[in-house]
Design a protein around this nucleic acid. Structure first.
Length: 230
DNA sequence: AATACCTTCAACCGCACTGGT
DNA sequence: AACCAGTGCGGTTGAAGGTAT
């Protein structure tokens, strides 16, 4: 497999490929106690890793209900469409694709879909430029419309990269109207806007938050994947 | 068979954001 | 207001596997 050579930094923190033993330790610990503090977790789990590495390994590889590889055509189309509207916001894209991680989607995009999307947009552009020859008025593209959306409503979008829980869950009527207006183009393009897209909480997967741990409510609606059944 | 080049993807790194003090 | 710790995100790296020459 394509892996990094295991190595240690000056503090003895291991880097590189995870061994099956390390995976086992991490899974067993999180299954039992949850990931209540990523920085301290490796110490308690008996792992010579940094918290970041543990988090990444869990989220991208060990977490339950992850699909691996074998993207369906529908999934690829969804990624392309979402990328067209969201750009490189991989976590937001992943949030709409159960079982897929941002890292995996990002990799798949760069290795398989990027070229395809570029070819598609070139083909679309040539069609549009031909049909617009007699119409000098510039039509907003999906991208420009989304940029406009970003600059005006970023703080209230649940897809905002670092939106706080309060802004994620409480959307004012004014903003909702604006969002609906700005995203009207999506209705014709994809069914992703059907249903309660923006108000739907970002809960896609289970996570292992122990019952004994204190309040996690502040993170429940963030893009990070928290579950109902904790 | 040898090796050079390309592809893939797990993992790392740096930065930004949030919440607490 | 300033600082710090914890966390999440996106860009990038690097090594193994695959393919071409």
């Amino acid at each position: 497999m394509m892996v990094r050579t295991p190595s240690c930094d000056k503090n003895g923190v291991k880097k590189g490929t995870w061994t099956p033993e390390e995976d086992k330790k991490l899974v067993e610990y999180i299954t039992r106690y949850g990931h209540w503090n990523w920085r301290l977790l490796p110490k308690f789990a008996g792992l010579a890793r940094c918290g970041k590495s543990c988090r990444l390994r869990w989220l991208n590889y060990l977490r339950p209900n992850l699909k691996r590889g074998n993207y369906t055509k529908e999934e690829e189309e969804t990624i392309i469409k979402l990328h067209r509207h969201l750009g490189n916001r991989w976590s937001a894209i992943a949030a709409r694709m159960p079982g897929r991680t941002d890292n995996e989607i990002k990799n798949h995009w760069h290795t398989n879909l990027k070229k395809r999307s570029q070819q598609d947009s070139v083909a679309t552009e040539s069609i549009v430029s031909n049909s617009n020859d007699q119409s000098p008025t510039e039509q907003p593209t999906a991208n420009t419309t989304f940029q406009s959306f970003n600059s005006t409503t970023q703080d209230c979008s649940p897809l905002s990269q670092h939106s706080s829980p309060s802004t994620s869950t409480v959307v004012s009527t004014e903003n909702l109207v604006l969002m609906e207006d700005e995203f009207a183009f999506w209705d014709s393009d994809t069914d992703l806007m059907s249903g309660n897209f923006w108000l739907e909480p970002y809960i896609l997967d289970i996570s292992y938050v122990p019952a004994s741990e204190p309040e996690y409510s502040s993170q429940v609606f963030d893009v990070e994947l928290w579950s109902h059944d904790t």
